[in-house]
Write a protein that binds this DNA or RNA. Structure first.
Ligand SMILES: [Mn+2]
Ligand SMILES: [Mn+2]
Ligand SMILES: [Zn+2]
Ligand SMILES: [Zn+2]
Lengths: 138, 138
DNA sequence: AAAATTCATGCAACTTAAGTGCATTAAACA
DNA sequence: TGTTTAATGCACTTAAGTTGCATGAATTTT
């Protein structure tokens, strides 16, 4: 059986054709993608199907959504090694304002912040913006 | 002359009726507001005018936009004491997932992060999510 | 295997926030 | 004053996200 098929099944996602293709599509990238990006990478499938597919992936812990401040949701594969569902979201993201790429810096965790009395933190989002390694040495 | 009128003029914003009202509206809040929130606080004025007013404020350094991950832009007054235009954006924000309030934690700066070679940081956004002081002690 | 049920897909339609074009009105200027 | 510039209001557009529903495919039950 295909390797991807296994990954989907482990996460209780039935391995349909679209899902296998989308997983492969995401796996071969090193940047986060919008739904439009995904749509551009597929000729046949419908926008709604792709939307529901990525949402299914998200719900089952295959991808995480990234809000990089552009106003459009981006998605990237979760680290396959991760077991803790929440550790995924605690790495930081870098958004290049030049090429618009957004990448996961999975081994850069968000530092701990001391909040005032009464505030309980459950989640956090840290986005650094500027020039990525490809765009900085112009 | 009115105090608010002075503030607007200092920032090269002509003190029209709508602008004075909006400034006062924002000043009397301690949470960030969406354009809809602003609209609800005004009976007469038109949405487009309010939109352009807040954008004028933003451009002239009177307010800053906050992206708390809800998908809707929020705005809050800049600290009046601030001189550095960039220091405004470097404090962190807290978004309560219970009451949907988003507040500026202006004296909580974003800690410095070491990035890989080639990455240049120009801006950053840190949002903590969870329960605010009003919602935590249920 | 056939029937029944559950799930995935495709198309259309809807919602909401954001933004633009343009005519009108008000303010500033000379 | 007349002239110019800026602010406002209304209509319209764009774009992302999302849902309803009918159809098709796959899984489960009998
Ligand atoms: Mn990531
Ligand atoms: Mn703030
Ligand atoms: Zn770049
Ligand atoms: Zn709260």
């Amino acid at each position: 059986m295909d390797e991807i098929e296994k990954v989907l099944k482990i996460h209780n996602v039935r391995p349909t054709a679209t899902r296998l293709l989308m997983y492969k599509f995401l796996r071969d990238l090193n940047v986060a993608v919008t739904l439009n990006d995904i749509e551009s990478g597929f000729d046949k499938s419908d926008r709604t199907t792709l939307y529901r597919t990525i949402k299914t992936f998200e719900k089952h812990g295959l991808v995480h959504q990234i809000d990089d401040g552009t106003g459009v949701a981006k998605y990237a594969l979760d680290e396959p090694t991760s077991t803790d569902i929440n550790s995924q979201s605690l790495h930081l993201h870098f958004h290049c304002t030049n090429c618009n790429d957004t990448i996961c810096l999975t081994d850069h965790k968000i530092p701990h912040i001391n909040l005032p009395e009464g505030f309980i933190t459950r989640d956090m989002n840290l986005v650094l913006k500027g020039f990525c390694d490809k765009c900085s040495h112009v």
